[in-house]
Nucleic acid binder design. Structure first.
Lengths: 141, 141
DNA sequence: ATGTGTGCAAATTGTTTGCATCACG
DNA sequence: CGTGATGCAAACAATTTGCACACAT
């Protein structure tokens, strides 16, 4: 069941901006910042105020449609949350993002989280793991 | 050899603000934001402009004295980089930070980085791993 | 003395808020 | 028609920049 239907069932309106943003996230090859979403909207000849974009990002996040990822130091980025939990490498020069197959360590991380839960008494533990480096292109320069 | 001496040998000046900031990072129990550093300076009766603090943070980072850690969505945080590579849990409610003994997965991460280097041709790969949850205190509320 | 480091004010960037208006269902 | 969604302007917070001046070496 697609997120459009989900949102409708939850009693939310399917506005032009909302549909477009969902579509933009579906088409995106990687995480998007608020700015990137606005550019995407402009490409579709849609004039959507940045306030609306920020509010919609917040909304979609609360509805668990998108998830925030900590890739940039200066702006927040979001991606569709359906995709199974994964990790990425970010080029520190050109910001290119490539997915990493980190399944091997997922189980190790899970065990670690259980350990933390026991020893530190923290609850609802999640993790954030990203890799940074220089892509082949930028490493040449 | 302490960082003061290192900086001197590299031909940098040891100003009051610089000494104080190094000391503040040494005394700190965890990562500090620019704001936290300013507060620390005020406690020492030192009036240091925020511009200077930001420039000094940038400088110390370039000199590899401190390292940026991605713990907050809204501000950058830094900690001394000498401490061997480690990870932490951040309480999503009160921001409390606790270190995590993640040595068990360090080797797994290293192997993964090598894999990324081979397959994606990224170079100089580093990683950032943090855990988020609710501390015992906040979980009660 | 001289060039690195500093202060101040103002600009920038990313994000949030108040309030009036609009339009989806 | 009524409430959730939107636009606009303005506020905010963190960080950055230009330029004149100061101080460590």
């Amino acid at each position: 069941m697609n997120s459009l239907t989900i949102l409708k069932e939850r009693g939310h309106r399917l506005t032009v901006a909302r549909r477009a943003m969902l579509d933009i996230f579906d088409q995106a090859s990687g995480p998007l910042s608020a700015g990137a979403v606005i550019v995407g909207l402009q490409k579709r000849k849609l004039t959507v105020n940045k306030t609306t974009v920020y509010r919609e990002l917040e909304f979609l996040q609360q509805e668990s449609i998108i998830t925030a990822v900590r890739l940039s130091d200066t702006e927040r980025m979001y991606e569709r949350s359906n995709l199974s939990h994964h990790h990425q490498v970010v080029c520190t020069d050109c910001q290119e993002v490539v997915d990493v197959d980190a399944e091997v360590i997922e189980s190790a991380l899970e065990k670690l989280e259980n350990g933390i839960r026991r020893t530190s008494r923290f609850a609802e533990i999640r993790h954030s793991l990203e890799f940074f480096g220089r892509c082949a292109q930028c490493a040449k320069l």
